[in-house]
Write a protein that binds this DNA or RNA. Structure first.
Length: 885
DNA sequence: CGACTCACG
DNA sequence: ACGTACGTGAGTCGT
């Protein structure tokens, strides 16, 4: 017996129509960048996915209506007359539907003079004869007349996903007649939407009764005498011709002169490249993502690749790579400081070598290639690769292209860490994502199957090579060559060195703090329970709200999505009303320090060297800053004394050494003074004034001899922050607890006093609206797709971002330049750079080198770039990070 | 896994 | 009129 054949027949026009109206309310949000409406295409494709999944067809055809003129209109001029014209928003989508189908490997067909129904009826009949199992998908219930044992009809009901499937049994159950009797019913009752009348006075009920009794229209007329109802009998006699004609119109043809055969309908499956291009043209991000995440069918779209397994005995093949190669080291776990090694791929063009055995990398042949400056290496994530190889005793050098870094610079939004996903976004589709190949969550694992694993590794190598030239080209177009080559690429190595160095943790000290805080927490908790009159989970905002706002009757100040807020600013306002609130604040603070810092830090100390080795994420933030994970060393407490004590646990890694720290003073406001050219702001820095006090003088319009009160300075400081963040009166009013009107007044005065700043804010937003992005002083770019959004909130957010990003981002540029120069400046010293916290650098050094560092470090930092105002750097040092204040 | 809270610049 | 300050990471709760 032959393999089972399953045919999917789709009524193109009716499904498109359904899709269009199902998504009609979102018509305007479904447009691509050319202004084409895409809701019907989108809905059609969703429906298609559902049907393909359900039917798993071997063959498929989408039939379309050829035009208004058909054999039916020739017989009966009014057929489908009076119908509203197809809306242009739908018609414009029809050609693209054909394109979609082609990309999805499905034939489409239309036949002059016939409707899609007739094509489907004829094909379904052919298929029945040939032993196919057929499913017809339509939005039109009339097609249920085609149901049979071998053919079922799926009718789209409401929305995009709901479908009702008809079998002959279901038809009888639902309509009371057999499928082939549907045309008899329609003959009698007519069809208003197709505009043919049937018999006057006969509706669905009567029609079904008559046909149940007499089987067919012919049967009805054969037994006219049996019909007692006089009126109905008269109507039947009167409209006899109409009845037969209506039945004829309702009858789907099963002998249409098709030019295509059943054997032409093979379902080819998705044409990967074509489909991706189409989705991109339509801006269908969700389908693109789905393609990326799906595992089965899409693999078929990949062209085969060739690789050779590298072994100890064929290492001499590597001599061919005397100029360049792509290299990829697979470390399956996220944390590359500790991850296992799963394998690697290296090669170029048609020559790819793979292995699971990373010891091969340590052989002279491979090691030489990786360490050579003469052989260019192209990689994905140079920092990860560098640290991984370093663990194997290999010093990676000669790196030319990093796909991850380049991609991040081109568009910070496309910052997936998954090579396959990223390649996909850049238009390279001959690769799957790691999630597809390795799985996700608990099921994630490196495949045991060599073919699958090695093929994926090879594809990674090829993707790196293929994207090198287009991405380099784009960097050049964006004027980001320098940024890439002289900032981010060297930065990766500097960061790798800092991560590898790590910072020493005094675990005994942390353990002592742990006991101390445990005791304190237990006491505070008891007090709180007594004050509350019951035990509850203080860490649960829900239970806490219950105690505070219901049991104790305090007044809620702020709401969250799920209830009343219990955040610090709320509790601080409530504190005078009940002593419990103060204790809760204390408890929260200590609990945070205990779990996140004391216990959190202890968990990530490497037992081998008593150090923590953070990972700096170089390609994550939208502004160009770094971020730090596992552990995050950029948010170690400092603002409260209890928290600050955590810093006592960060110590030098050698006896007699010190922790040394230098930070930029007011770097963001200095950057602001530079890029706005504001003379008044610049003057304050050139004269080395206290910037917040100076701002206070101006916004409070103080006379030269008047005193700036601490409160004025505090408010001015908030205004300065507000300016950097992209000011709004509301935000400022919230921050310093004044009315919106007062905040507005502050801002207006500020802009009068600093006209250059005002001008900049106006210009940068206008430029962002025009170009779609903003830039830092080093040409780091951030796209702002919402800058022209209709939605006020989205647009406002983008506008504030436009104001803030060049400031925050340029400050990030500056410290990065300083760090790169720093490594070189320190090369003859024992001092080591350990940490970066956005505007400060932390080192460890022998006590004897401290005098040198006190001169050297600030000079490197303040001369990193030449701005219109000076940069200022302050330094501190001590036995621990805590003491370096 | 999202919401909330809170640590940093 | 709209309703938020900019950029991060991590722990805990509760569905």
């Amino acid at each position: 017996m032959a393999e089972s054949k399953r045919l999917l027949l789709i009524d193109g026009n009716s499904v498109a129509f359904r899709a269009f109206y199902a998504l009609y309310t979102s018509l305007n949000s479904f447009t691509n960048s050319d202004g084409l409406h895409t809701n019907a295409i989108f809905g059609f494709n969703r429906m298609l996915d559902i049907m393909l999944e359900q039917v798993k067809p071997t063959d498929a055809l989408v039939a379309f209506d050829a035009g208004k003129v058909t054999f039916r209109t020739k017989k009966y001029a009014d057929y489908k007359g009076g119908r509203a014209k197809t809306p242009p928003e739908l018609s414009e989508q029809m050609p693209y539907l054909r394109k979609l189908l082609q990309a999805r490997g499905i034939k489409s067909y239309e036949l002059p003079n016939y409707e899609a129904d007739d094509i489907i009826g004829t094909m379904a009949k052919e298929a029945e004869k040939a032993g196919y199992e057929t499913t017809i998908f339509t939005g039109d219930r009339d097609l249920t007349q085609l149901t049979s044992d071998a053919t079922s009809v799926a009718v789209s009901k409401k929305g995009v996903t709901e479908v009702e499937t008809y079998t002959p049994e279901h038809v009888e159950e639902k309509l009371g007649v057999r499928p082939n009797q549907i045309i008899e019913i329609k003959g009698l009752q007519g069809d208003t939407s197709d505009n043919y009348p049937g018999v006057a006075g006969v509706g669905p009920k009567t029609a079904v009764n008559l046909i149940q009794k007499y089987d067919t229209i012919d049967g009805v007329y054969d037994h006219l005498d049996d019909i007692s109802a006089k009126k109905m009998k008269a109507h039947l006699i009167e409209d006899k011709d109409s009845a037969f004609q209506s039945r004829d119109l309702a009858t789907i043809r099963r002998d249409a002169p098709l030019e295509i055969k059943l054997s032409d309908l093979k379902y080819e499956g998705d044409q990967r490249d074509e489909l991706v291009a189409f989705y991109q043209e339509m801006n269908f991000q969700s389908f693109l993502n789905k393609m990326n995440a799906d595992s089965d069918d899409d693999v078929l779209g990949l062209k085969p690749v060739h690789f050779t397994v590298l072994t100890q005995s064929n290492l001499d093949v590597l001599s061919q790579f005397d100029d360049h190669l792509s290299f990829y080291l697979e470390m399956p776990e996220e944390n590359y400081h500790t991850s296992t090694f799963a394998g690697f791929a290296l090669g170029k063009d048609q020559q790819w070598y793979v292995s699971r055995d990373v010891e091969l990398l340590q052989t002279q042949q491979v090691k030489h290639l990786l360490e050579s400056d003469e052989v260019q290496k192209d990689v994905f994530d140079v920092k990860r690769t560098y640290v991984g190889l370093n663990r194997l005793g290999i010093k990676l050098s000669g790196v030319d292209f990093d796909l991850l870094l380049a991609s991040y610079l081109l568009d910070t939004n496309e910052n997936s860490n998954d090579l396959g996903r990223l390649a996909f976004q850049h238009g390279y589709h001959q690769i799957q994502s790691d999630e597809e190949v390795y799985g996700k969550g608990a099921k994630r694992s490196i495949p045991n199957d060599d073919q699958i694993f090695f093929e994926h590794l090879t594809r990674k190598g090829i993707a790196i090579q293929s994207l090198k030239s287009p991405l380099f080209k784009q960097l050049k177009v964006n004027e980001q060559n320098d940024l890439y080559r002289n900032m981010e690429l060297p930065m990766a190595f500097v960061l790798a060195h800092m991560e590898i160095a790590g910072i020493m943790v005094d675990t005994d000290r942390l353990t002592a703090m742990q006991s101390e805080f445990t005791e304190l927490l237990a006491q505070t908790q008891q007090t709180i329970f007594q004050e509350a009159g019951e035990d509850f989970n203080i860490g649960s905002p829900k239970q806490l709200s219950h105690i505070l706002f219901e049991k104790l009757g305090l007044t809620p100040i702020k709401k969250t999505k799920t209830g009343y807020s219990t955040s610090v600013d709320v509790l601080e306002k409530l504190a005078p009303e009940a002593p419990i609130v103060e204790n809760i604040l204390k408890y929260r603070q200590i609990a945070k320090i205990q779990s996140t810092y004391v216990e959190g830090l202890l968990k990530v100390v490497h037992s081998t060297d008593q150090k923590v080795h953070t990972r700096y994420l170089q390609t994550l933030t939208q502004t160009g800053r770094l971020s730090s994970v596992d552990p995050n060393l950029q948010n170690i407490p400092i603002r409260t004394e209890e928290g600050r004590r955590i810093r006592q646990a960060f110590i030098p890694s050698h006896n007699g050494w010190q922790i040394f720290s230098s930070d930029y003073s007011q770097i963001e406001l200095r950057v602001l003074a530079h890029i706005t050219h504001d003379k008044n702001l610049q003057a304050a820095f050139i004269n080395n004034e206290d910037i917040h006090a100076s701002t206070a003088r101006r916004i409070f319009r103080l006379s030269p001899d008047a005193e700036v009160t601490p409160n004025m300075r505090r408010q001015a400081k908030a205004v300065n922050f507000g300016i950097v963040y992209g000011i709004s009166d509301y935000g400022l009013s919230q921050n310093i607890g004044i009315t919106r009107k007062q905040a507005r007044q502050f801002i207006d005065t500020y802009f009068q006093e600093f006209p250059g700043v005002k001008q900049y804010m106006t210009d940068i937003v206008a430029s962002a609206k025009d170009k779609g992005y903003v830039e830092t002083i080093a040409h780091r770019r951030r796209y702002l797709p919402d800058i022209n959004a209709r939605n006020f909130n989205q647009r406002s957010f983008a506008e504030r971002t436009a104001m803030n990003t060049p400031i925050q981002g340029s400050a990030a540029d500056i410290i990065k330049i300083a760090m790169i120069q720093m490594e070189d400046a320190l090369k003859d010293l024992q001092a080591t750079m350990l940490l970066q916290v956005h505007d400060e650098l932390i080192f460890e050094a022998p006590a004897s080198e401290i005098p040198t560092l006190e001169k050297l470090v600030p000079s490197v930092m303040d001369s990193a770039v030449k701005l219109e105002i000076p940069l200022k750097v302050e330094s501190h040092y001590g036995d621990t990070w805590y003491e370096a204040k």
